[in-house]
Amino acid sequence: MSTERVSRTDKELWRSIAPERGVAPEAVSDIDFAAWLEGRLPEAAAARIEAAVGADPALRRAALDLADILGKPLPAAPARLAVRAQALVGFDAERETGRSGGWFGRLFASGPLFALQRAAMIAMVVVVAGAGFVMGGGLGDSFAQQRYGSDVQGASSTTTTTTSSELSDFFVSDGI
């Protein structure tokens, strides 16, 4: 960068002159300011921005700083900055956009590996549920035997005894 400075007498003359009176800095939009910084504006529009930049020291410093930054290679930003900024937009918004394709659309929206995982999970649930049903049935039988088995045996022995006494009574009554 050049270290050339203009002569001191010119500077003294300028310092003895006041800025123009009654010229309030005009508001400049971000996009107009950016367009002017890139030299994209036509002459009349550029003159309007130059008047505003000339009248407002803050805007002038901003213009000089931004022109300098934009003309140089940039140093890397701290990793923390990017991580925090990336967290501002979450997965919810993306999920919203994927909802249009129905159940199968959502299933395959995230790739075949995701769909395979889902299918494996569903198969596992079916196997576990089936095994549980079978085991539940077996337990039901054994429970029924435990609960009602003694009554059934008792009922069958009573019937046999009753039948045998009836037959004895029949033979006795006939004198056999």
Partner: peptide, 20 residues
Amino acid sequence: TERQTLILKCLYDEERDVSE
């Protein structure tokens, strides 16, 4: 002109180099 004023302000008020 607006440009002349801006150049003088950058050089004298902001004390920037001609290259800047």
